[in-house]
């Protein structure tokens, strides 16, 4: 499995330089991996918290929504929610976590255009159920968390990919490239030694021949 090289001293020097570089890269990548994992764990923990919180809130909101839906005709329900009073503008920028470009969301909740004092409830009271209020309130409160969750979840996913990639690189360096380089340089050293020994033997032989002729 050794690399086909000319067993020259120049090649050896070159290999040694590559090996040193590979080892340095390996160390750096290992550090990067550790840091990535640390960041990853933080995000994962945050993700878990957010998700649990949101799932709890959402299922409560959906339960309320369902109950409201159960006592309101479909068309009344849809009419009630037809015209939203809130508009959301969302801007996505990049943030750099260990050279991973994770999305960063920024949002602005605008009250319906120039309308001042419009509440989050876009419907009247006569034919809607009060359970709808609770549902809408919960859902409206949960939106920032929901956006945050989307942000964190995407970051976690990107980080995981990056960790995987880095780990593969570290492994490739550790188990393939570095051993290969070491082996090859050992081979060249041995070959050079061998050549040296051959030359020495040859010299001694010549010396013997010359001496016997004299």
């Amino acid at each position: 499995m050794e690399i086909r090289v000319n067993p020259t001293r120049m090649e050896l020097n070159r290999l040694k330089k590559r090996l040193k570089m590979a080892e340095r890269g390996h160390k750096l990548l290992k550090d990067k991996r550790d840091e990535l994992i640390r960041q990853f764990l933080i995000l994962v923990r945050k993700n878990k918290e957010l998700r649990e919180h949101i799932e709890k809130e959402l299922s409560a909101a959906f339960a309320k929504f369902l109950l409201a839906r159960a006592v309101m005709p479909a068309e009344t329900m849809e009419e009630a929610l037809m015209y939203p009073t809130r508009r959301l503008s969302l801007q996505i920028t990049k943030q750099n976590i260990m050279s991973v470009y994770a999305p960063k969301m920024q949002w602005d909740e605008e009250e319906a255009a120039e309308g001042e004092g419009a509440s989050i409830y876009p419907y009247g009271f006569a034919d809607t159920s009060a359970e709808l209020d609770t549902s809408i309130e919960t859902l409206s409160g949960i939106l920032p968390s929901l956006l945050e969750l989307a942000e964190v979840e995407k970051s976690v996913q990107l980080l995981a990919e990056e960790i995987e990639k880095t780990r593969r690189r570290v492994n490739a360096l550790e188990y393939v490239l570095i051993p290969k380089l070491q082996e090859t340089s050992r081979y060249i050293t041995m070959k050079l030694d061998e050549n040296e020994r051959g030359a020495l033997t040859r010299l001694m032989k010549i010396k013997d021949v010359v001496r016997s002729k004299m």
Partner: peptide, 16 residues
């Protein structure tokens, strides 16, 4: 002016 959809519902419910 107000762009508040609740006004539509409330006004019409009252009128009803």
């Amino acid at each position: 002016v107000s762009r508040d959809p609740q006004l539509i519902d409330i006004n019409l419910d009252q009128a009803l």
